[in-house]
């Protein structure tokens, strides 16, 4: 029983990382029906910038700076890669463009920080807290959980309580009607890209002390988060949390009871099952599009 709990706890913090990256995918998808396929690179860039900044101004002061960096990086991706494709009504141009910008980002990161993985110093003690009779929880795992939840909650609150947030929701609901309200819907899409990358960058600095830090650290995370976004539904905030936790926990169990070699299998099986049975995702709403 205790081992089951232990695996769940590790699964939860990993799952929240998937969830928060998947949440980032949703942000751009709802406003523009496009995704940033360079999300993994945005995550790695965030972690690397965070690593450099934290040795200079300290871990906690670095966090808001990394969010700002993510905002700017995401806005740049939108301006360079997505907007031209949307403007020419290119159906798939944005896919190649966001992948390309991701690769450029990765190469730049390799030039600046090198190709070797770096160690991100943990801001919290690296000795596990023992609960009950031997349940071990790393303080960093708690920070991941709290940080990811706080970020999602903050964005949710901003979109419900502020006028600009409501304008983003209006853009997501009906882009044309939003422009009739005097809303510059292009800027709202830029903003959603900025927020999406800020979320990824934060996920990067949160996960970095638990893994290694390097230009390629985001690739598999972003891919699995993409699966989570599909599993949970591209328009359901609850869906990505449940999907992320399911995947995170399933991976831990597979790694422990089968083999670490099969760790990636449950996620892909879940993805295939969801696509076969509920293509809109576990919590996704079917959108009826009137033409």
């Amino acid at each position: 029983m205790q081992i089951v709990l232990q695996l769940c706890i590790s699964g939860v913090s990993l799952g929240m990382i998937y969830a928060v990256i998947a949440f980032g995918y949703q942000l751009t998808y709802v406003t523009s029906k496009t995704l940033n396929f360079g999300q993994g690179e945005a995550l790695a860039l965030g972690a690397l910038v965070g690593l450099s900044l934290s040795s200079w101004i300290g871990y906690w002061a670095m966090l808001p700076m990394v969010l700002l960096f993510g905002l700017a990086q995401g806005a740049l991706v939108e301006r360079l890669g997505v907007r031209p494709a949307l403007k020419t009504r290119s159906e798939f141009g944005w896919i190649m463009a966001t992948i390309a910008i991701g690769i450029i980002g990765k190469n730049m990161a390799e030039t600046i920080w090198g190709k070797d993985d770096l160690k991100f110093p943990s801001p919290l003690p690296e000795t596990p807290i023992i609960f009950g009779d031997g349940l071990r929880v790393m303080p960093m795992e708690i920070l991941v959980l709290v940080g990811a939840l706080a970020m999602m909650l903050l964005i949710e609150l901003l979109s419900r309580r502020t006028l600009v947030g409501k304008a983003v929701v209006a853009t997501a609901d009906d882009r044309e009607a939003a422009s009739l309200m005097g809303i510059n819907t292009g800027s709202m899409i830029t903003l959603s890209y900025g927020l999406s990358s800020a979320v990824a960058a934060l996920a990067g600095v949160l996960v970095a002390p638990l893994t290694l830090t390097g230009a390629s650290m985001g690739v598999s995370l972003a891919l699995k988060a993409f699966a989570v976004a599909i599993i949970g539904g591209l328009n359901s905030g609850m869906g990505v949390i449940v999907g992320g936790l399911l995947l995170g926990i399933a991976e831990q169990f597979t790694a422990f009871y089968l083999s670490t070699g099969y760790k990636d299998v449950p996620g892909l099986l879940m993805l295939l099952a969801v696509l076969a049975i509920r293509p809109t995702g576990l919590f996704g709403k079917t959108v009826i599009k009137k033409v």
Binding site: L163, K166, A167, A172, D173, L180, M181
Partner: peptide, 21 residues
Amino acid sequence: PEGRRVFPSLSVLDNLEVGAY
């Protein structure tokens, strides 16, 4: 616009507020 096109996931009050964006 034709077909009303209100913002379904915003409340009535928020729709009006966005109208005065």
